[in-house]
Amino acid sequence: MAFIELEGVEKTFTVRRKRGRFTRTKDEVRAVEGLTFGVERGEMVGYIGPNGAGKSTTVKMLTGILTPSAGRLRVAGVDPQKERVRLAQRIGVVFGQRTTLWWDLPLRDSFTLVRRIYRIPQDRFEENLGRCVDQLELGPLLDTPVRQLSLGQRMRGDITAALLHDPEVLYLDEPTIGLDILSKATVRRFLAEVNARGTTVLLTTHDLQDIEQLCRRVMVIDHGRVVYDGGLEGLQGSDGAERTLVVDLAGPSPAIDVDGARVVRREGDGERQWLAFPAGRSAAPLVAAVAERYPLVDLSVREPDIEDVIARLYRGVPAQAT
């Protein structure tokens, strides 16, 4: 049995809408439907999808603060709805946009509070705090009131607060939102380390760099369903994704005509042309064919952009590099 297991999970919300001045109608909104997947212990999985796809709803059901309308759900063999408080001892949650830290008090005080909440033995607490402080560079900030921290510093504080009790599974929702490049790199390096130590991580994000650098497996969810589950490379090659060969010619030229590729764009009267070809195919024969018949000056190959791939996946259109 997988560590995190969902089987045919559905969640329907009833939304009241105003129709006339006094009349209201009840509409059913399906946030999640027929969600089925498993995550093994120690995996780090990217869980992505457009806004409103059902990502947060899934995380809320996994933590037990939302009850599914139908289906079966287990985390570490436990039904989160029935044993929310007991399961809370074993999970860590970071919502990038929300904070659990004590706003007006030094960062250190929030960590002491976490120690009390989760009844963490003193030695383990000190060891875990020491490691987090060290790797997330929080040392000089421990005595600073949380309200004076920058967004990146506060986020690192929240991540620390979520990990002090050695949770078996960590849910991250946009842990790098609004951070600068340096802070992002620090957070990512740290999360990779957390995962390497055996913590199962489910990472929800809109930042695909997070996924590229951290997750071997990616699940794309849209309209409450998993539309892709697999490796990142597979995502790039899926759904007829195409790579692009950009060629610079010595002078103006009509559209290049070679087998296995088609011109998708021309510039400067054909001096620069973009040729799309299937992502699974090697570029070498194509380059040779072009060089043989056209005055080739320069070239480059562009991989399908993951962001574009996903955007197309969301819309159900084959991906294409630009």
Partner: peptide, 13 residues
């Protein structure tokens, strides 16, 4: 009002 209360529910308190 802000919805932050849901984060409080994640904790065993």
């Amino acid at each position: 009002r802000s919805g932050d209360i849901s984060v409080d529910l994640y904790r065993p308190v």
